[in-house]
Amino acid sequence: MHRQSLSLSHPIDLSKGDAGLLSPAIASAPDALRIQGLAKSFGKTSVLKDLDLDVPRGSVYALLGRNGAGKSTLIQLMLGILQPTAGQIRMLGLDPARDGVELRQRVGYIPERLPMYDWMTVEETLRFVSPHYRNWSREDETRLVTTFRLDRTKKVRELSRGNIALLALVIAMAHDPELVLLDECTSGMDAIARSEFDRTVIDALHGSNRTVFFASHQIHEIERLCDWVGILHNGRLLLQAPVETLKSSVKMLRVTGMDKDENALAQSPNVLKAQTSGREWLITVQDYDEMTPPVKFFGGVVKEAIDLTLEEIFVALVAKEEARI
């Protein structure tokens, strides 16, 4: 199976040769989302720059990035709410700028701030949105409302943040969407509410062939949900890869007896981060899987290769990019 090297300057593209990571049926299906050369500016401020991104159908894709990286802007471009400055977006084969209305019929969207009409009750909110979706299912709506234990007679302003998010999930799911977009919808929730919401989302989406696209900076939470990850930084896609590929490629090496200094290590394209505690170095490297297996590293002896969490990988990659700039 061909693996491309992770490269910060050139995001990984999933070629059909990497289809072994997905089921053959999904791998052969056209991408749920394909973005080429996307750019978006607001006046003189450039928010997204030359973005290329592919989301395979049926995958759970997590777009990671710091606050202000451009995640929400990207999602609004994907839905046709904003128009791109340059580039092309194809979502479910449709152009959001031209077919935004049709696209929003087939996509479920849960935004960050969950702005609903607080004077409406849960029932009124659902009656307000449902006629606009041709595939709205009252059975699915009833099942979801019952599962989430939402009180239909309560006004939106009386609901907790978590319940509002669940109501948004009902709206997003009840019309049987092919793609679900979640844009930092757990922000503002406490840890328990976030955990419960994530579990609810997994249960609601489990077993469906839907494509799910998360945009979040809560990396430790979505790590267990996603099978693809993209890292957005300063409007550019640093990297996109299957999560397992990323985790097998980026490791922390515990190295002893090395005589290099930090500057020399920083020059190496494979080294993302290096820190020393006297005799030992802890060096975060990329392309570890191509080191076959590394015993020596810069004259030192590799004692251990430590698996990293997605959050640690994200921090290391972003730090390397910021140092490069």
Partner: peptide, 11 residues
């Protein structure tokens, strides 16, 4: 802040 909710509907 409800304009984004309105414009996100398929209308």
């Amino acid at each position: 802040g409800t304009m984004s909710f309105l414009t996100s509907l398929p209308v």
